[in-house]
Simulated assay, not measured.
Amino acid sequence: MLHINKYDLCIFDCDGVIFDSNNLKIQAMEEVLISYFFQAGEIKNSLGYFKKNFGKSRFHHVEYFLNNFLCVETNKKNDLKHNILDDFSSKCQKLYLKANLTPDILSLLNKCVSKKFIASGSEQSELRSVLEHRKLSKYFESIFGSPTPKDEIIHNILEKESTRNAVMIGDSFSDMSAAETNKIDFIFYSPFSNVKDEMIEKCTSKKYLIINSFNELGLNYD
Rank of each mutant, 00 (worst) to 15 (best):
K6T: 15
Y7T: 00
D8Q: 11
F12N: 02
F19L: 13
N22H: 03
N23P: 04
K25T: 09
I26W: 02
M29K: 03
M29T: 03
E31S: 12
E31P: 02
I34P: 06
S35N: 01
Y36D: 05
A40G: 04
E42Y: 06
N45H: 13
G48W: 06
Y49H: 15
K51D: 06
K51S: 13
K56D: 12
R58F: 05
E73G: 07
E73V: 05
T74P: 06
K76I: 09
D79K: 02
L80Y: 02
K81A: 02
D87Q: 11
S89R: 13
L106S: 15
L106K: 15
L109A: 08
C112Q: 04
I118T: 00
G121S: 07
S122I: 03
R128S: 12
S129D: 14
E132L: 15
E132S: 13
R134T: 06
K135S: 15
S137L: 09
S137K: 09
E141D: 10
T148N: 04
K150E: 04
D151G: 00
E152F: 02
H155Y: 08
K160L: 09
K160H: 10
N165V: 07
M168D: 04
G170Q: 04
F173L: 12
D175F: 05
D175I: 07
A179F: 13
I187C: 01
V195T: 15
K196Y: 10
D197F: 09
D197P: 01
I200R: 13
E201R: 08
C203Q: 03
S205C: 01
L217G: 01
